[in-house]
Amino acid sequence: MTTAISQEVTYLEAISQALDEEMSRDERVFLLGEDIGPYGGAFRVTEGFQKKFGDWRVLDTPLAESGFVGAAIGAAMMGMRPVVEMQFADFISCAFDQITEVAAKNHYRWGAAVPMVIRAPYGGGIHGGPFHSVCPEAWFFHTPGLKLVAPSTPYDAKGLLKAAIRDNNPVIYFEHKFLYRRAKEVLPEEDYIVPIGKADVKRTGRDISLITYGAMVPLALEAAEILEKEAIDLEVVDLRTLLPLDQEAILESVRKTSKVIVLHEATKTGGIGAEISALISEYCFDHLDGPILRIAAPDTPVPYSPPLEEFFLPKVDDVLRAARQLATY
């Protein structure tokens, strides 16, 4: 044990640490993406990596998402463990075909595993406008063969990225840009992973289950503090993994509280919240004491101007309102 004072680590630093440690641990791990080499990536996640690991383990690619995701798939099949950086999650649409048609189906079709991670910096709240703010997880949620993770804390960010790199399947790792420098905590010194497929109850409560993930988790916890003063005890379930969904954790919480709010930043129609609502009504109907409420962004692209984006994103007030409504049942 060292006596050094433990330092708080940001969500972004936690991601860097995970990459650094996994690259040091396993020489099959390599990085590819746009401007990740000498420049260190648009968000500086891989600053200094190329110096440390060399030009052929940190590769700047041409601006061609389908091409470099495809290259990652090919390398993964040859026993490498590529970690692809999307500069912004929005651009993942250019690689949609390689992800859904090739990576996701490969093992099912002919038994060839694709151990690949795609890091997707996603989400709004940073005035990115329609092309730099999207929450695209639902596009991939409907694709068997993929795994999707979306951490909300530095601890989970580090542990889930390590788990994703060690996983033998294609994993899309949704890292929320709003949390990059805002979420901070002290991390364990030793190596750890957060298992894929396990949700985490971030706050236990008796009255209402709030099921959420990503940047909505801190918002939910903030709402829970306020509601506590009104004697409404919120349980906050952080999904952490979106695919495969931890159904048991969701159902267990609902069986306890009998009331549910599903909260996500992505737009409402056909979102992950819809699937969670369906699951609960299918398997937990008898336990419910009220309607399953969904809080999500409206069905529009993410707008740019501050009052518009403010209107678009789910807010603490939305949670308060929904919780108060459910408390009356």
Binding site: F68, G70, A71, I73, G74, V102
Partner: peptide, 19 residues
């Protein structure tokens, strides 16, 4: 089936050999 999808994969395998 998606024609040309295999070509990026080929570059990736070649990249693995090169690395």
């Amino acid at each position: 089936s998606h024609l040309a999808d295999n070509l990026p994969l080929a570059t990736g395998a070649a990249l693995a050999f090169k690395i």
